[in-house]
Amino acid sequence: MRSDWILDVLTDLKTFATANDLPVLAEQLDDTAIVALAEIAALHDKMQGNAHVEERNGGSDFGGAGAGRHA
């Protein structure tokens, strides 16, 4: 899922705030963009980690080794 569109929105809002003499809002939007970047990166890392788990489990994230199989 592409989540980085939110960064474009925040940039547009900051541009508006700056152009309309709203410096505190512009600064807050910078901080918000940093939070968004961090959360998007964490989500990306989490999704990558889940993909690796699925690969190790043969494409399934249900149970550990031998889950659903009889010995």
Rank of each mutant, 00 (worst) to 15 (best):
residue 46 K to N: 08
residue 23 P to G: 06
residue 69 R to W: 07
residue 46 K to Y: 11
residue 31 D to V: 02
residue 16 F to D: 10
residue 34 I to N: 06
residue 15 T to K: 14
residue 47 M to Q: 13
residue 10 L to F: 08
residue 5 W to K: 00
residue 66 G to C: 04
residue 30 D to K: 06
residue 25 L to K: 03
residue 28 Q to D: 15
residue 24 V to I: 13
residue 5 W to D: 12
residue 58 G to M: 01
residue 6 I to F: 04
residue 67 A to V: 00
residue 67 A to T: 02
residue 23 P to W: 01
residue 48 Q to E: 13
residue 56 R to K: 10
residue 53 V to Q: 09
residue 31 D to E: 12
residue 51 A to C: 01
residue 2 R to I: 06
residue 67 A to F: 14
residue 3 S to N: 05
residue 13 L to E: 12
residue 46 K to I: 04
residue 46 K to M: 06
residue 47 M to Y: 03
residue 42 A to S: 11
residue 28 Q to V: 05
residue 68 G to R: 07
residue 54 E to Q: 09
residue 12 D to T: 14
residue 10 L to W: 03
residue 42 A to E: 13
residue 24 V to H: 09
residue 47 M to T: 07
residue 14 K to W: 02
residue 50 N to H: 11
residue 39 E to Y: 06
residue 66 G to E: 06
residue 56 R to I: 05
residue 49 G to T: 05
residue 6 I to L: 09
residue 38 A to D: 15
residue 67 A to M: 02
residue 39 E to I: 03
residue 54 E to K: 12
residue 26 A to L: 10
residue 23 P to M: 03
residue 12 D to F: 11
residue 32 T to I: 02
residue 46 K to E: 09
residue 65 A to F: 06
residue 36 A to V: 15
residue 38 A to H: 06
residue 56 R to W: 03
residue 28 Q to N: 15
residue 57 N to S: 07
residue 57 N to Q: 11
residue 19 A to W: 04
residue 27 E to P: 00
residue 58 G to T: 04
residue 44 H to S: 11
residue 21 D to T: 13
residue 48 Q to M: 12
residue 71 A to M: 09
residue 66 G to K: 03
residue 3 S to D: 07
residue 60 S to K: 07
residue 11 T to Y: 09
residue 49 G to M: 00
residue 7 L to C: 00
